[in-house]
Design a protein around this nucleic acid. Structure first.
Lengths: 199, 199
DNA sequence: TGTACATCAGTGAACGCGCGTTCACTGATGTAC
DNA sequence: TGTACATCAGTGAACGCGCGTTCACTGATGTAC
């Protein structure tokens, strides 16, 4: 009755890095249902079927794990944006689509989205060189100049980028916090211009 | 040596509602330095010089206290916006000024600002009647139609309001999370248009 | 004005909780001879 | 191929912690007679 499940005793139940992967995977899953403070190391370990101290073989402490989760979230957010951008064939339409993808990703993964901005290495898209890391926000910087009128000076491009990012980020946050009703049509309408023109 | 400080024993150290007021006041002060999870009932009580259970005479539980703090924060945010609006004489300039005030309030009170959107009664400025409560966001709804071109249909006004709110909110959040460098000139430039025009 | 009493905002002690983290350990794996 | 050994990813038990909340209580205040 006790041994129905193949007890692995201790030792190599996971080979080389599997537990790390499993921790991130299950951590992300837990974030789908709970919010950030609801994610505890002991509970996560329990979920995976491993003892809590095992985590410390892979992460120096809880913050390190959260940072890894945030980094993975950022990566996926970037992936979602890139996919949307490619799918629409790039250009202005692609830029808009990737903005919409940003908001939709936030709505689909509320806790993860918030975690990203609390724990991820700062994206630094605005002032850092674009080769820093492949992040969601790099799209902005890479594509903003294609959208702007030819000859727009770099300082103005920077303002456009911040404005566009603020626009999608603010909409995402307000929707996440329930300040207004969501709706694809509304999201599209709000993001239509993105304030790029005008000045 | 023990009695230097006028020991109040127990009983009416605070008359009628004073402790409630004190809890909110000191709670807000603590939020100036720590973030939200750093705010504990026991610590707050210690700070004020009262026993933890005393809090329960005024708030049913911790969430009730946090909600009160958020409500007060929302009130003050609204006050800051209103002051900025009046000071510039209203109109388009006032609208812009109140947007800047929103961002600046966020930067000056990061934890409180975030608390507002986690715990405050939903502002509902977008779809609720404006007589609901005097909140920061009511400004938006009250003033957005003055800014928009005459004859703008209400659905479009709604989009404009959401767009403007998203704009300031997103900028505030990104700055709070350290995603880019703050700076009055930059804030002003980003908020200059607010995406009202265009479509 | 003086006395008896109800009210109720405080008190100190205690509760159970789950947390993150540490410790000394164990035993399967991969490697060297 | 067989044996001895180092490695190191796991284990279970235990730690101290501060938390939110409950409990029975106390005693100053305000009120009624």
């Amino acid at each position: 009755m006790q041994d129905l499940k193949p007890q692995v005793a201790n030792a190599r139940a996971y080979h080389h890095g599997d537990l790390r992967h499993s921790l991130i995977e299950h951590g992300l899953e837990m974030l789908e249902q709970r919010n950030i403070d609801g994610l505890g190391l002991r509970e996560l370990a329990r979920e995976i079927g491993v003892s809590p101290p095992a985590i410390y073989r892979h992460f120096s402490d809880k913050n390190a794990l959260l940072r890894a989760l945030a980094a993975e979230g950022l990566h996926r957010l970037g992936g979602a944006q890139a996919a949307a951008f490619e799918k629409t064939g790039g250009g202005t339409a692609g830029f808009s689509a990737s903005g919409r993808a940003y908001v939709h990703y936030a709505l689909e993964h509320p806790a993860l989205f918030k975690l990203i901005f609390s724990y991820a290495p700062k994206a630094d898209v605005i002032d850092a060189p674009p080769d820093a890391a492949a992040t969601a926000m790099l799209h902005l910087r890479e594509h903003i100049s294609e959208i702007a009128p030819a000859g727009t000076p770099p300082e103005q491009l920077r303002i456009y980028a911040i404005r566009a990012w603020s626009q999608v980020h603010g909409l995402a946050m307000l929707l996440l916090d329930g300040q207004m009703k969501a709706g694809d049509a509304m999201i599209e309408a709000v993001l239509k211009v993105e304030g790029l023109a005008g000045g």
